[in-house]
């Protein structure tokens, strides 16, 4: 549905996004994840035809965003960063204005407004000025605006930023509900958001894509790997081989840490096995003395942190 190939955008001297490529298939909900300033918003602004790329190509539904800008815009519903709204209008007037700009036929406009009001829960604030709405309601208005023409594609730039935890849950559920029949790209710098709403995560850092995998894969990565650090005394020679023989151990690496009494090893182990008992038995058999053993599980946060750390 959306295909991004070798996309680059340069502001002045600096490349905001640098040669990125990824695809989003019809019906997917993709989380576009990265720290602030990574290039998420820039990428979304190019997909939505707000600005053209410096080089590279973006097609939406097979149409190039530069050559068929108007047709691409018709396919997309867009919630821009910070959710700008006309604060001097009331909710109904605003939705009607957007519906007209979205080329809905006169007969369908009221119907669609009513549907959006129902889905987004705007019944109580219909005739209030947008300037008087709470942040949660503003966000719902933003989503209603993006959905009013029943687009095939939704581009949501940080849809839950600045909301309180209850509102965040509300908006996420709304996105899930709305996104069922649609292709959605949703940007965020919050991991749990991707876990809660998305099928797939594309992680971007400093203008480059550093990971692109389904959430199931990422999740398996969390539960699928654990790291055990052991510190042994009374060890001689290379023992990585014999440690590697323990069931479930995939990799053994000696770590050289200053100030440790013994020698340290880091074992990468499959997630469904706890090898600590075996390590202990092995040590007893080989006459090693265990002075420290610690197990750590890698969380999605660690993966994210590792992928996006600045150096």
């Amino acid at each position: 549905m959306i295909e991004i190939s070798n996309l680059t955008k340069v502001y002045g001297q600096q490349a905001a996004i640098d040669d990125i490529s990824f695809k989003v298939d019809t019906g997917e909900i993709v989380g576009f994840l990265g720290p602030n300033g990574a290039g998420k918003t820039t990428t979304m602004k190019i997909i939505t035809c707000f600005m053209p790329p410096t080089s590279g190509r973006v097609t939406v539904g097979g149409l190039d965003v530069e050559q068929h800008s108007m047709d691409v815009r018709r396919m997309i519903g867009y919630l821009p960063e910070l959710n700008p709204l006309y604060s001097d209008m009331n909710v109904v007037d605003f939705l009607r204005y957007i519906a007209e700009l979205r080329e809905l036929e006169e007969g369908r406009i009221n119907l669609r407004i009513r549907e959006m009001v129902d889905i987004c829960g705007l019944g109580d604030v219909l005739h209030k000025d947008i300037s008087q709405l709470s942040k949660g309601y503003r966000q719902r208005v933003g989503l209603a605006q993006a959905m009013i023409h029943d687009p095939k594609i939704l581009i949501l730039d940080e849809p839950t930023i600045g909301l309180d935890p209850n509102q965040v849950v509300d908006i996420r559920n709304l996105i899930k509900k709305l996104g069922r029949a649609k292709t959605v790209i949703l940007s965020t710098h919050i991991l749990s958001e991707v876990q809660a709403t998305c099928d797939r995560a594309v992680i971007i850092n400093r203008g480059k894509i550093v990971a692109d995998s389904t959430l199931a894969d990422l999740q398996r990565d969390i539960s699928g790997r654990q790291v055990i650090d052991v510190e042994l005394l009374n060890v001689s020679g290379d023992i990585t081989g014999s440690l590697g023989g323990i069931a479930g151990v995939e990799e053994v690496r000696e770590t050289y840490l200053d100030g440790n009494a013994g020698r340290s090893f880091r074992l990468t182990v499959r997630g469904d096995i706890d090898p600590r008992a075996d390590i202990f038995k092995k040590a007893v058999d080989s006459d090693w003395i265990i002075v420290a053993m610690a197990r750590e599980k890698r969380s999605l946060e660690d993966i994210f942190h590792q992928l996006t750390k600045t150096d």
């Binding site: 939505t48 815009r73 018709r74 821009p80 957007i98 700009l101 080329e103």
Partner: peptide, 14 residues
């Protein structure tokens, strides 16, 4: 200033 221009120019309108 308010950012609504981004909303407006991503509508199907020249």
């Amino acid at each position: 200033k308010t950012g609504t221009m981004e909303l407006l120019v991503t509508m199907p309108i020249s």
